[in-house]
């Protein structure tokens, strides 16, 4: 399925004449090409993001006088990216401050300044990746359909490729076929898989998994959880319990809790982050589906109101479509003129 997709893509778009002969060496080739495909997808993904923001920004930085309209327009573009009122206003205020400090007079000189302010606002809590160094349990949480299971699969491959003994745990015992779905990802990533029975208590699955991890000397345990809306008290309690069990049963492990947010989410993301933070002490955010037209402005909103670093972005459905978050690249990508002409908003 997924493999077919990738093959198709390779066949259609990527393989140049010189490369055709290499087609025989299947495994290697696919891996190579997937890398190419990954990079292209990433650029393409961010280009989409770029198009939309720059589409708005472009006309702004002409060498005209800086006035309130100019700031209003920046604010409008930020809000259109889901950055939210508060974060947008804060960015604008900071920009105004620096414009004054540095005696900037024309709008074209503001470009770099705005980039700087935006990057800094995303760097309030720079990402770290302690689980790449330590024995760890990574709990992946989020609302329904955010992209948790896919992210678990992607992350498993990343850690395995770093030479870690990695295990995936299916603690979504609720949604139909969730276990089967994750099983496919475990196979794709080529890592251990601990499954449960549908309807089994997820906390007990996690308990078993912790024992297995200790026994097998696993470096990284990644737990997928059922999607849950953050305003459901009982489901959030369940998550609290899972977190407790991990800490109790595997006290030597570093515990990372990744909150997966759909990149197209609006201001509700803040409410989500707050509640998940309460229930399971979220240590990092993953923003998915940024290969679409969603601009992921919630990254600004989250940074502005909660001190959780954004650690990854998801840029596609294939296994290597997960990228470490880099504020500077993120903002640069939003600004750099796109190479593609297509106007996604047309």
């Amino acid at each position: 399925m997924e493999e077919n997709l990738i093959n198709e893509e390779i066949n259609e778009e990527e393989i140049t004449e010189e490369e055709v002969k290499e087609e025989e060496i299947k495994e290697e080739d696919i891996k190579e090409e997937k890398k190419g495909g990954f990079f292209r997808r990433l650029v393409k993904g961010l280009t989409k993001t770029r198009d939309s923001i720059v589409g708005g920004f472009e006309d702004l930085f002409t060498a005209s006088e800086i006035d309130e309209d100019f700031y209003d327009e920046i604010e409008e573009i930020l809000i259109m990216s889901d950055a939210g009122m508060e974060a947008s206003e804060e960015i604008i205020e900071e920009l105004k401050e620096r414009v004054k400090q540095r005696h900037v007079k024309k709008t074209d000189e503001c470009r770099e300044l705005l980039k700087e302010v935006m990057t800094e606002s995303l760097m309030k809590n720079p990402p770290d990746y302690p689980y790449e160094e330590k024995r760890s349990v990574i709990l992946v949480v989020g609302v329904n359909g955010a992209g948790k299971t896919t992210t678990v699969g992607k992350l498993a491959l990343k850690l395995k490729d770093q030479g870690k003994k990695t295990m995936i745990v299916a603690a979504d015992t609720f949604r139909a076929a969730a276990v089967e779905q994750l099983n496919v990802w475990a196979d794709r990533a080529g890592v251990d898989f601990i499954k449960c029975n549908e309807g089994q208590d997820p906390a007990s699955v996690v308990y078993d998994a912790m024992q297995a991890a200790k026994a097998r000397n696993t470096d990284a345990v990644i737990c997928d959880t059922a999607g849950r809306l953050h305003n459901k008290k009982n489901l959030m309690n369940e998550l609290e319990k899972i977190t407790r069990i991990i800490n109790r049963e595997h006290p030597d492990a570093y515990v990372e809790t990744l909150l997966v947010l759909d990149g197209a989410t609006g201001q509700n993301a803040i409410s989500q982050a707050r509640e998940f933070l309460n229930a399971s002490k979220v240590t990092g955010v993953v923003i998915t589906k940024l290969d679409g037209t969603a601009k992921g402005g919630i990254a600004f909103a989250i940074q502005n109101s909660l001190s959780i670093p954004v650690k990854y972005i998801g840029v596609g459905e294939a296994i290597d479509d997960l990228q470490k978050f880099d504020a500077k690249d993120f903002v640069d990508a939003l600004f750099d003129k796109s190479t593609e002409e297509e106007d996604v908003n047309a």
Binding site: S81, N268, G292, K295, G297, I298
Partner: peptide, 12 residues
């Protein structure tokens, strides 16, 4: 459409 969708809902 997910009720939590933000500004992109129009494009979608």
């Amino acid at each position: 459409v997910d009720a939590m969708t933000g500004q992109e809902a129009v494009n979608v």
